[in-house]
Computed example of a mutant assay.
Amino acid sequence: MGFFAKTSRSHASLNVPALVQVAALAIILIRCLDLLMIFNLLGLRGILDFIHRSVQTWNLTLVFLASLMLVFVEIWCAFSVVKGRNWARWLYLLTQVIAASYLWAASLGYGYPELFSIAGESKREIFRSLVMQKMPDMLVLFLLFVPAHSRRFFRFQ
């Protein structure tokens, strides 16, 4: 078989529900917008300082690399979701649980760096901000798991 040979999975006959397409596109756009907002907030000098600080200790380096890996895994999930891969939506759910848990812990002082924390005066205020920040991701998860068309699409792929 050649490189361009079509397989049964590569045909365009895969009927992807609109809600799954919207969810996949939203994952990609949310992550790209997050990166653009971080670049805008920190600027080039701030990004370089952040990277420089992130490689000072092994712990910071691991957190930095894990955050980058998490972004790439989320984007990979978006492309896989459109192909009907059921594991991709579950992996995306796992990435959201990990990200929200780390943000919550870092905001309460159990993690670092400061970029991965949410400012707030009380746990309730931090939690409210966290929920508001993760609202787009929760909507994407809703689109992937709740509508009958989405569930059926992943069941028969």
Score class of each variant (00 low, 15 high):
Ala66Trp: 05
Arg155Asn: 11
Val73Phe: 07
Ala5Val: 11
Ala78Gln: 04
Arg124Tyr: 00
Ser122His: 03
Ser150Asp: 04
Phe127Ser: 11
Phe79Ala: 09
Val73Arg: 02
Ser117Pro: 09
Met37Pro: 00
Thr7Ser: 15
Val55His: 13
Leu68Phe: 11
Ile47Cys: 12
Arg9Tyr: 10
Val20Gly: 03
Phe4Cys: 12
Asp49Thr: 08
Leu91Ser: 05
Ser67Phe: 10
Gly109Ser: 07
Ser8Gly: 00
Arg155Asp: 11
Ala12His: 14
Met69Glu: 06
Val82Glu: 02
Val146Thr: 14
Met132Trp: 12
Leu62Ser: 09
Val131Leu: 15
Phe156His: 15
Trp87Glu: 13
Phe72Leu: 14
Arg85Gly: 00
Ser67Pro: 01
Leu60Asp: 15
Asn59Ala: 07
Arg45Pro: 04
Tyr110Trp: 13
Glu121Tyr: 05
Gly111Ala: 13
Val22Gln: 09
Gln56Arg: 12
Ser67Ala: 14
Gly120Lys: 07
Lys134Gly: 01
His149Cys: 06
Leu36Tyr: 12
Gly120Met: 06
Ser54Asn: 06
Ile98His: 00
Met132Tyr: 13
Leu108Cys: 04
Leu68Lys: 07
Met138Pro: 03
Glu74Cys: 06
Met1Tyr: 11
Leu141Lys: 06
Ser13Asn: 13
Arg89Asn: 05
Gly84Tyr: 07
Ile38Tyr: 10
Met135Pro: 02
His11Asn: 08
Ala12Ser: 13
Lys134Arg: 07
Ser117Thr: 07
Phe156Met: 14
Pro147Gln: 11
Phe127Thr: 15
Leu139Asn: 02
Ala88Thr: 02
Ala106Asp: 03
Ala5Leu: 08
His11Cys: 00
Asn15Ser: 10
Arg152Val: 00
Thr57Ala: 08
Leu94Ile: 10
Thr95Asp: 02
Ser67Trp: 09
Glu125Cys: 00
Ala23Pro: 06
Ala78Tyr: 01
Met37Glu: 12
Ser13Glu: 12
His11Val: 08
Asn15Gln: 14
Arg151Tyr: 08
Ser10Leu: 10
Phe154Tyr: 15
Leu144Gly: 03
Lys83Met: 07
Gly2Pro: 14
Asn15Thr: 09
Phe50Ala: 06
Trp87Leu: 11
Cys32Asn: 06
Cys32Leu: 15
Gly43Tyr: 07
Phe127Glu: 04
Lys123Ile: 01
Gln21Val: 05
Ile98Asn: 02
Lys6Ile: 04
Arg155Pro: 02
Ser13Lys: 09
Phe142Glu: 03
Asn86Pro: 01
Leu139Cys: 08
Gln56Asp: 09
Ala24Met: 01
Leu65Cys: 13
Glu74Gly: 08
Leu42Asn: 01
Glu125Ser: 11
Arg152Leu: 08
Glu121Leu: 08
Pro17Gln: 13
Ile118Val: 07
Phe153Arg: 09
Gln96Thr: 04
His149Ser: 15
Asn86His: 07
Gln21Ser: 14
Lys83Ser: 10
Trp58Thr: 15
Phe156Asp: 15
Thr7Phe: 04
Asn15Asp: 14
Leu141Gly: 01
Ile126Trp: 05
Leu35Ile: 15
Leu93Ile: 04
Ile38His: 14
Cys32Pro: 02
Val71Thr: 11
Leu141Ile: 13
Asn40Pro: 02
Trp90Asn: 12
Ile118His: 00
Trp76Pro: 01
Leu143Met: 15
Val97Cys: 02
Ile38Lys: 05
Trp58Met: 11
His149Ile: 05
Val16Tyr: 04
